[in-house]
Computed example of a mutant assay.
Amino acid sequence: MTAIRAYRPSDRDAVDEICVRTGASGKDATGLYSDDSLLPDIFADPYLTYQPDLAYVVDTGDHVAGYIIGVADTVAFADWYKREWLPGFTKRHPLEAAATDDEREMIRYGLSYGSRLVPELGEYPAHLHIDLLPELQGQGFGRALIRRLLAELEARGVPAVHLGVSGSNKSARAFYDRLGFHELPSSSPEGPSLGIATSAVV
C-alpha cells in the first residue's frame, strides 16, 4: 500500500535517483551532466544530512517514488552549507572539470547555493524541495506531502516557507498555484520564488 512516511537513511539512494529523474524542469536529467550525483549533491543530500527529520517519502511498498525535504531555518542551513558541505562539494565537482557550459553553470550554482537567500527570509524562514516520479503524479501525493511538512513546520513555530521553481516548469508552477502558494516580492519570471504560511489549508 502506497503511503507517506518519515525518511530513513536507507532511502537516500532512492531520493537521489528521484532528484535526477525529475531534475530537468520535472523531466529526467539522467546523463545531462558528466556526473549524475551533481543534482542531488545540491538539491537533496545537503538537506538529508542537515535536517533529516524534515524529510518525508512516498513508499509504494516496493520502492520510494517521491519525497519532500526542507529546512526550518534557511539562514542557519546556508551557514552550515558553506562551512560543512561546500568543501566536499568543491572536491567532488571541480569547476574546471565541467564537460559543458550547462554543467559549469550548475556547479557554480552549487558553489554559491548556500548564499542564495531570498530577501523575505524574515517572514518565510523555511524552504523546501519536493519531487515525485511520474507514476505518483496527479494522485494527491504532492498535496499530501506539502500538508505533512507544513504541519510539522507549524508545530515547530515556523510561520511560513518558501521555494524556488524553474520558470520553464509550468506543471510545477500550476501545482503550487492550486495549493495557494503566492509569488514573493523578490520573485522574477526567470526564477520564481513562492511562499505560503505553514498554517495554510492546502
Rank of each mutant, 00 (worst) to 15 (best):
Glu17Leu: 06
Glu84Gln: 08
Ala14Phe: 02
His127Met: 03
Leu136Val: 09
Glu103Phe: 01
Asp13Tyr: 00
Lys91Gln: 15
Leu194Gln: 00
Ala24Val: 02
Val165Gln: 07
Arg12Leu: 15
Leu32Gln: 15
Asp79Ser: 13
Ser187Thr: 06
Leu184Asn: 06
Ala155Glu: 15
Ala72Leu: 08
Ser34Asp: 09
Asp45Ile: 05
Val202Pro: 00
Ala55Lys: 01
Gly110Leu: 07
Val165Tyr: 06
Pro40Met: 13
Val118Trp: 12
Val20Gln: 11
Glu105Asp: 15
Ile130Glu: 06
Pro125Asn: 09
Asp73Lys: 03
Glu183Phe: 03
Glu152Cys: 00
Pro185Glu: 12
Pro94Leu: 03
His129Ile: 09
Ala174Glu: 12
Glu103Lys: 05
Ile68Glu: 07
Val15Asn: 03
Asp45His: 11
Ala44Arg: 03
Leu86Gln: 12
Ser168Lys: 14
Val158Asn: 04
Val15Gln: 01
Tyr47Asp: 09
Ser115Gly: 14
Pro125Leu: 07
Tyr47Trp: 14
Arg143Phe: 09
Phe141Gln: 01
Glu123His: 04
Leu194Glu: 02
Arg143Tyr: 07
Ser37Gly: 06
Val118Ser: 11
His182Trp: 08
Ala155Met: 08
His129Tyr: 13
Glu123Gly: 04
Gly195Asp: 08
Thr90Gly: 09
Val64Ser: 02
Val118Pro: 04
Arg8His: 11
Asn169Arg: 03
Pro87Cys: 11
Ala200Ser: 12
Ser186Met: 13
Ala98Pro: 02
Val71Pro: 00
Leu54Thr: 05
Ala200Asp: 06
His93Gln: 09
Leu179Arg: 03
Tyr81Gly: 01
Arg92Leu: 07
Leu32Asp: 11
Leu111Arg: 08
Asp59Arg: 07
Glu105Gln: 14
Asp35Ile: 00
Tyr113Asn: 14
Leu149Glu: 14
